[in-house]
């Protein structure tokens, strides 16, 4: 579904954000990009979303260039900060996507909000919603046109720990119902472990893939305190320590 081969991204000024990245994501797979700040995970996501172009190498999404995939409405994105229009209600914000992309099989915005447990808040403006609700609306915006691929850039990064945990569980439910291919950028090991099929661990300077690990099915559950989750988180966290450059940890 997603193919990244030999992709590098150099910014003007010489910073190498990504260096020779190879990655394949299969249809229906949930892949997390995990790593410390500056490892290029957000840059990689922007390349997938067609918001940036690689300096070299090839990025393909569903066999197409990302921009072309966007044109066909194959991609939905949600960022850490909800991309909502403040003067539109939750429902109108979800509709906004459909005003731009018309695809057969799209969700009905009201129905989607109902599924997201936001039925009562459809006519609320963003500033009237909590951060967690805003993010659910934001993800509804990204999903409503039923794209094949969902790209999430730390969607829960700004939320408190409890909300974050509950939303993670909620997201797993949503994805399993809709069956999208998902690439999630995250700082959070727990999030990555409990959501993903595979976790791509990246390291900075320059941004490279350190390792890729499969997550055992037993760890992809809602309870972050479950032994399988804790074991996998611990395992991953240790590896994460290995990629943080010496002295940068402080």
């Amino acid at each position: 579904m997603i193919t990244v081969s030999q992709v590098s991204k150099r910014f003007p000024g010489g910073t190498v954000a990504l260096d020779q990245i190879d990655l394949t994501v299969a249809r229906g797979e949930f892949v997390s990009l995990l790593g410390p700040s500056g490892c290029g995970k957000s840059t990689l996501l922007r390349l997938l979303a067609g918001l940036d172009t690689a300096t070299s190498g090839i990025v393909q999404v569903g066999g197409l260039a990302p921009v072309e995939a966007c044109r066909r409405g194959a991609i939905g994105v949600a960022f850490q900060r909800p991309a909502l229009v403040p003067s539109r209600t939750a429902l109108e914000n979800v509709r906004l996507t459909l005003e731009i992309v018309r695809r057969p099989g799209s969700f009905t915005p009201a129905e989607l909000l109902r599924q997201f447990g936001l039925e009562a808040f459809g006519h609320h403006y963003p500033h009237q919603l909590s951060g967690g609700m805003q993010q659910r609306v934001n993800i509804a915006c990204a999903l409503v046109h039923r794209p094949e691929i969902l790209l999430l850039d730390e969607p829960f990064g700004a939320l408190d720990e409890i909300t974050r945990e509950s939303l993670t569980g909620w997201l797993r439910g949503v994805i399993s119902a809709t069956g999208q291919t998902v690439v999630l950028v995250t700082h959070s090991v727990e999030e990555a472990v409990t959501l993903s099929h595979r976790i791509v661990l990246m390291r900075p300077d320059p941004g490279r893939i350190h390792s890729v690990s499969e997550v055992p099915a037993a760890a992809r559950i809602g309870d972050w305190t479950a032994p399988a989750v804790v074991a996998e988180v611990t395992h991953l966290r240790r590896r994460l320590h290995g990629v943080v450059p010496a002295g940068a940890a402080a």
Binding site: A49, G50, L51, V67, C70, R71, G73, I75, G76, V77, A78, F79, R81, P82, A83, L84, V85, P86, S87, R88, L96, T97, E99, I100, V101, C141, A142, H145, L151
Partner: peptide, 26 residues
Amino acid sequence: ADPVLIDRLRTLHATRWQIFRKAAWP
């Protein structure tokens, strides 16, 4: 206009005019 919103619209392959109408103008 919110750059994040504009990015989101770009991933929907919104035209310049749509970005104006839906994000910048509001």
